[in-house]
């Protein structure tokens, strides 16, 4: 019955050792799927490379659907897993800033680390920027603490908020993602005809 670390089936220290291996799996997939290239990531937003959309949304729908099946077979207790808390104003602001940072820098934290591992200098600079950004945040934190903690909704899921069963959400996301895959494939084909020099 999962999560096995929470239910005491493995020790806390073993959980940390496993964390390294889980991280390795994540890093491996990121690099192998092409997230170690800033041009691949930025390409999403210019329509010439949708690898990010494909990997990201496939992962989301596989996990969503997988969680529901794991719960149904009695292998995972969904009430014990961590749910991201929601702080409306600060999370909206943070996401906007992150979006701008992503298109300027060409990475997100996970992908930059995977790219540093294979020797990308731009990724290293992005990672240094991350440290500076978080340091700056810590410095201005006393000024924005109130904003940071405002609009707290708790650890809410979509189901808590709307009353719609998680199955419907998983189904809805899957349908949207599948449609997006087919649409982006045709956009990509059209845009790539115009860009000659980029090797895909």
């Amino acid at each position: 019955m999962g999560p096995i670390a929470i239910n005491g089936l493995i020790s806390a220290n073993l959980n940390l050792v496993i964390a390294v291996f889980l991280g390795m799996g994540f890093g491996f997939v990121l690099e192998a799927s092409g997230f170690s290239s800033a041009r691949n990531i930025a390409g999403t937003f210019y329509g010439y490379n949708f690898v990010v959309v494909r990997v990201f949304f496939t992962a989301v729908i596989v996990t969503m659907v997988g969680l529901l099946y794991l719960s149904y077979f009695g292998w995972l207790n969904l009430s014990q897993i961590f749910i991201l808390p929601t702080y409306l104003p600060s999370m909206i602001t943070g996401s906007i800033i992150m979006g701008v940072g992503m298109i300027i820098g060409g990475f997100c934290p996970g992908t930059s680390f995977a790219a540093v591992a294979i020797g990308k200098i731009d990724a290293l600079f992005f990672a240094i920027g991350l440290f500076i950004g978080i340091f700056l945040f810590a410095e201005v934190y006393p000024l924005i603490e109130k904003f940071y903690l405002s609009g707290y909704l708790g650890h809410v899921t979509l189901t808590d908020l709307t009353g719609i069963k998680p199955g419907w959400w998983a189904f809805g996301f899957t349908v949207i993602a599948l449609i997006a895959f087919w649409v982006t494939a045709s956009i990509e084909k059209k845009v790539r005809k115009k860009i000659k020099e980029y090797k895909f």
């Binding site: 994540f26 800033a38 990201f56 991201l84 808390p85 702080y87 600060s90 999370m91 602001t93 943070g94 996401s95 906007i96 800033i97 992150m98 979006g99 701008v100 940072g101 992503m102 298109i103 300027i104 820098g105 060409g106 990475f107 997100c108 934290p109 996970g110 992908t111 930059s112 200098i121 731009d122 990724a123 600079f125 992005f126 990672a127 240094i128 920027g129 991350l130 440290f131 500076i132 950004g133 978080i134 340091f135 700056l136 945040f137 940071y148």
Partner: peptide, 23 residues
């Protein structure tokens, strides 16, 4: 490289407000 650092700074700042990054 300058863009990468600026992007990193913005992203780093944003992650704290957003309670996490893309992952």
């Amino acid at each position: 490289l300058v863009a990468a650092v600026i992007g990193g700074i913005l992203f780093g700042f944003g992650t704290r407000l957003g309670r996490g990054c893309t992952s």
